[in-house]
Amino acid sequence: MAILEAQNLWKTFGRTAVLKNIDLTLEKGQALSIIGSSGSGKTTLLRCLNFLEQPDKGIIRVNGETLFDAADPSTQSEASIRKKRLHFGLVFQSFNLFPQYTALENVMLAPKLLAAEQPNFKAGKKEIYARIEAQAKELLNQMGLSSRMANYPHQLSGGQCQRVAIARALALHPDILCFDEPTSALDPELTGEVLRVIRELADQNTTMIIVTHEMAFARDVADHVIFMDEGVIVEQGDPEEVFENPREERTKQFLSRYKQG
């Protein structure tokens, strides 16, 4: 069974339809990359999956459980949405780290708050916090940030910030980790370090959706690629296929712009 199924997602802002009939499935352990020109609806799609936008139509299922159904208001209560979000993680283009917390604190904040909601939290508070801290350190190590844990975001480079943001998202063990152009806000010489950690995550079979303009990366890392244009999925398939032998005219045009550039 697919870990993620999105069916017939529609989203309009005012009169413009930004997502039109998006169908999407993702298998556990796979990486999906989404490419497409600016304004094609890629960010909106990720935001819908993370419940930052509410689709006008469609269904979102994770592990067979219907998390969202536009036709069923009982799936849309504010309180239940908060828990459902935890199936997904989202790494933003602009990091959105919390400036008043150190790298380590950024990673630990949400796990601590969630732990405090558990019934027998009070009794085991010390051990729980210790476990959360150990895990956060482990994640930051994995991101190559062992010497940066006590730094505040403004003391870190963009690439380091983005790696903290990745660790922060991973700390909640999402079923599906989404990246929205994770390197677009970075200086070119810093993209490599971020792409490297995403590649490592892919090697460990992390289930991911990666929106990116790094075509070579999308092709190498992804098990499946989707090309979007004007709110529709124009073409999808095996990365080899889509990049080497695109069937659709719009895909060809889009890719040729990148080959020249």
């Binding site: 908060r82 828990k83 979000r85 989202l90 933003f92 959105n96 909640l172």
Partner: peptide, 14 residues
């Protein structure tokens, strides 16, 4: 910035 709130939401915060 609105991104601060969104980052919190995505992390399951109230």
């Amino acid at each position: 910035p609105i991104g601060q709130e969104e980052a919190g939401l995505v992390l399951g915060m109230k």
